[in-house]
């Protein structure tokens, strides 16, 4: 087996591993959106697990792309998703919070971090 061939197989393996991991994250996020109890908890699954999953899938596609233009375009899409996805999540969360949508908590009143440690018995 020549060096170029080994390189090709290595790229293929990394690409498949990265895209499979991305698919697992995306599907786990989707299942979380169905299973979790209230809006704020669903937001964690939908908005954020997506970001890593999408980046991994795009990384895998970059590795299997042939020419530099496709790679650059895919990287650009990845950058756009990386910048806009958390912003959109924050926008939805902030809108819900400002509209008075209260999260489903054991106790709603948030405490300051310094007295959080002694106040909370971990389950």
């Amino acid at each position: 087996m020549s060096g170029a061939e080994i390189w090709h197989h290595l790229l293929f393996a990394i690409s498949v591993a990265s895209m499979s991991a991305g698919l697992v994250f995306v599907l786990a996020g989707a299942i979380g959106v169905i299973r979790l109890p209230d809006f704020y908890t669903r937001m964690h699954a939908a908005g954020v697990t997506d970001t890593l999953g999408a980046e991994l899938v795009i990384l895998g596609l970059i590795l299997q792309a042939g020419d530099w233009q496709t790679m650059a375009k895919l990287a650009l899409v990845g950058l756009l998703l990386f910048l806009t996805s958390p912003t959109a999540t924050h926008a939805v969360a902030n809108a819900a919070h400002r509209a008075g949508h209260k999260p489903d908590l054991a106790h709603f009143k948030p405490s300051h971090p310094r007295d959080l440690a002694d106040e909370e018995g971990k389950a």
């Binding site: 299942i31 109890p37 999260p103 908590l105």
Partner: peptide, 24 residues
């Protein structure tokens, strides 16, 4: 953190304790 969230979601029974925290 992603692995932790996936583990929480994939548990057979959802067992989460959401919190609101203030961070300086």
């Amino acid at each position: 953190a992603n692995l932790a969230v996936v583990k929480l979601v994939m548990k057979p029974e959802i067992d989460v304790e959401p919190r609101l925290v203030r961070v300086p």
